[in-house]
Design a protein around this nucleic acid. Structure first.
Length: 149
DNA sequence: GCCAACGTTGGC
DNA sequence: GCCAACGTTGGC
């Protein structure tokens, strides 16, 4: 079982939205490095639900991957905000997974607090200028982050 | 709103 | 294949 961190802007999809939905697709990832990580996801993997581009940014809770990766057909829909004009039935490079909420943290683990923790130097989230929206989390990093709430 | 960092695009 | 221009991300 693997661990991940995935970013979402709460204005478009928040941890409360996931709670309301019960199960939801995590789609719209349009970056190849992030896509490659998603291809390695498996059911029962866990992920940290990160709220980005908000005040304050941080980890809002824990979710679970509940499907194999599958083609992200939102890319084919011109009306969809994640439409990719270069995608087609024959060439659909993007993937989605279905996710559920495991638990919402009582309080957000803010990025400012995460930066104070020791042992997270390898986490891409903390690297300057990092924009990766899906990243792996090691078991050690997972233990540090989930113990900090 | 600003801007640094990074990915993508397109001319050559 | 290079690289300048441009668009996007995302913290502050």
């Amino acid at each position: 079982m693997a661990y991940w961190l995935m970013k979402s802007e709460p204005d478009s999809f928040s941890i409360d939205d996931l709670r309301s939905a019960g199960q939801a697709p995590w789609d719209g990832v349009r970056n190849y490095q992030a896509r490659n990580f998603m291809r390695n996801m498996q059911p029962r993997d866990s992920f940290l639900f990160y709220h980005s581009s908000c005040k304050p940014p941080g980890i809002a809770g824990i979710g679970e991957i509940v499907s194999e990766p599958y083609p992200d057909r939102a890319a084919l829909d011109p009306e969809n905000p994640y439409h990719d004009a270069k995608a087609s039935e024959d060439r659909l490079p993007w993937v989605a997974v279905n996710v559920t909420l495991s638990k919402k943290f009582p309080t957000l683990l803010a990025l400012a607090d995460i930066k104070q923790l020791n042992g997270l130097d390898g986490l891409p989230l903390l690297h300057k200028g990092n924009r990766l929206s899906v990243m792996p989390v090691t078991p050690q990093q997972w233990a540090i982050l989930t113990a900090a709430t």
